[in-house]
Design a binder for these strands. Sequence first.
DNA 1: GAGCCGTTATTTTTT
DNA 2: ATAACGGCTC
Length: 829
Amino acid sequence: MSNSFDDIPFFDEEPEPAPRKAPAPPPAGNAGLGIAARAMAARDQHRAPDYLSGLNPEQREAVETLDGPVLVLAGAGTGKTRVLTTRIAHILETGRAFPSQILAVTFTNKAAREMKERIGVLVGGAVEGMPWLGTFHSIGVKLLRRHAELAGLRSDFTILDTDDVIRLIKQLIQAEGLDDKRWPARQFAGMIDTWKNKGLLPADIPEGDARAFANGKGRELYAAYQARLKTLNACDFGDLLLHPIAIFRQNPDILKDYHNRFRYILVDEYQDTNTAQYMWLRLLAQRPKGVPQNVCCVGDDDQSIYGWRGAEVDNILRFEKDFPGARVIKLERNYRSTEHIIGAAGHLIAHNEGRLGKTLFTDRVNPDDEKVIVHAAWDSEEEARAVGEEIERLQRGDSDGKKHALNDMAILVRASFQMREFEDRFVTLGLNYRVIGGPRFYERMEIRDAMAYFRLVCQPADDLAFERIINTPKRGLGDTTVRYLHDYARARDIPMLQAAADIIETDELKPKARKALFDVVQSFRNWSQKLENTPHIELSEQILEESGYTDMWKNDKSAEAPGRLENLKELIRSMEAFESMRGFLEHVSLVMDAEQNEDMDAVSIMTLHSAKGLEFETVFLPGWEEGLFPHQRALDEGGRAGLEEERRLAYVGITRAKRRCHIWFVSNRRIHGLWQSTMPSRFLDELPQMHVDVAVADTNYGGYGGGRGGYGQSRFDKADPFANTYSTPGWKRAQQNKTDATRDNWGTRSGHAVERIGYGESGPRGRTIEGELVAKSTTETPSQFSVGDRVFHIKFGNGNIAAIEGNKLTIDFDRAGQKRVLEGFVERV
DNA sequence: GAGCCGTTATTTTTT
DNA sequence: ATAACGGCTC
């Protein structure tokens, strides 16, 4: 990726690169014998193309089918990235196109980076980094910088992050005279995001959506937001796709230029594309009749896990219709995992409908390979303890004599709150771990503040940056002054910094405020002047010093302050890799991740979502319980489709494992501070017995599995390894109740309630009626208990009720102390 | 402008 | 339980 938009040559100026080996490529349209012959000649000229050797026949077909649309359905671990990179190498080596004529799109910066590296290895350093290899968004920016004026922007427009967007929307909501509490800006930002994912501009949004927000002013608000972005000379992430789409549609000549340019288009993770990305791609892939559309999309419908943020699996399912004559190549030979892991994952995912249908296989079968092991634990604490023990066992090499590195192990959770218990446990054990995901470097407050200073220096019209730091550190420029500045600027349609400069010439402000503002304006003038001729590192340090920002944290006595100062230093350090401040800002707005420390040997803890694309020798999958996984909310909001996406998530989880996969479920989990009994996930039932073992009790209290004899017992039990697990009354009832839709918030399934306290057919619980949650809290329903009652809880034992609020009981337990539990989980004794 | 208190939500995450 | 946010008071 380029570090700065300054150094991207504009379209017309871009020099044709000197041919590397082959003569200038002929137009893509003239595909035929000539090209094939030439390609072969090119291939023969420089040795055997060793990059092709070692590919299996399907991979090779995917690499060598260069003309016309190709869909590569690449199952987990089948060498997807290899195909993609080799294909690009092949295009380049055969002289079919120059690097600048290949458009290659990924979703994440990480994927883009990886691809670049691997192509470099294949083709050799001689080929310039491909200018059009990047994420949808980074390519979108590049396009938009070139044609900004067609979208009503200047080419130095700012890219707003989510935080800026929310603040901006909040202002608009207030400006409309609406109650910003009743209509949360965050929610509207989410709606806009959803609309933009679908490619909808204010005029296009459904009437229902428009009415649902801001007293029916949804559409106006969206339009006002877009207008405000334009005056701010700014874009949100969605605009990076939508503006280019609009430009292409309104300027056929420009689109045609790009058609001529991009001889080959490649898309990674096609199953994750949303409608806007799809539209963008269709526009660029269009060709006149008879000219082959050299589009190659790679993806796996079984790994589509981002439906909730607008990804349309349909895009991949529809590929053959969209691109007539498409060649569909399935990669099903898995190079990653054992037959048991593949078998387990394959059987599970087969429960989904509407798949394109791949079946992974491997012929590297080893009788020593471990099956997927399902463990039961009493509660989440025991789960963490047992996983910790297993990790230490592997580390010591107890089981197979081999000492395993922590780096080869990962714990993949459904929801991030699950991480905590593992972290706590590992801290006690002194076991190294690293959390992947979580709050990101560039999202930290101090980094955003510093960035706001830099932004304002580079782009004096950046009002959002102005408002962020005008009184940080405190300068006595409070709400009143800022509001005044804001109104003044809006009235004259000038940036706030300009307004500030104007106002200090007058005597509108009180002397104190005026002086403070004067100083700020002077500082920014000074810094802006230095922008061009001072090294940006130096200037950045100077800004943070002179503004008093560093001092602010030096004087702060809170525990975080030293860390924040450290982060600021890190920020400056990370700027060294860039040529200019602008280049750095551009990078950060698109690349929000910072490097992870990989020197340490540590267990990785992350969500299933962030595990996609990774692999580990050993994978632990805790929390396979109904309500958590599949997640209740996915079921409530997504219905059957939601369930299938959860199942794909499970599939992704299992297929991350190369050799060992341990799945866990617990009988009790604390959710929102309340202990809940839980049932094993239905996904466990969907695993094939031949590839799965149920672990014998890991501890004395081993929950469902516990009834089952001690160590003498073989895991390879004859009959039904699930017999214990699934023959409990609760599970059977759960099976019956599956269809009843009698669940409210997770955990309070009527099935369980019935079991524990013997309600009649209809417990006084919330019911799901037509997807709407009714009677979520049962405040109106008189509790069946009274204060002072003696009750029994399955985890905490006996106790006395101390207080009752709705269906929540506060109980003084004899042994466990005071806890709050749902009344469904205790019974009178 | 800091500190206190009540309210609220609490799946997943990129760019 | 718990953290984060917003509004209020001093």
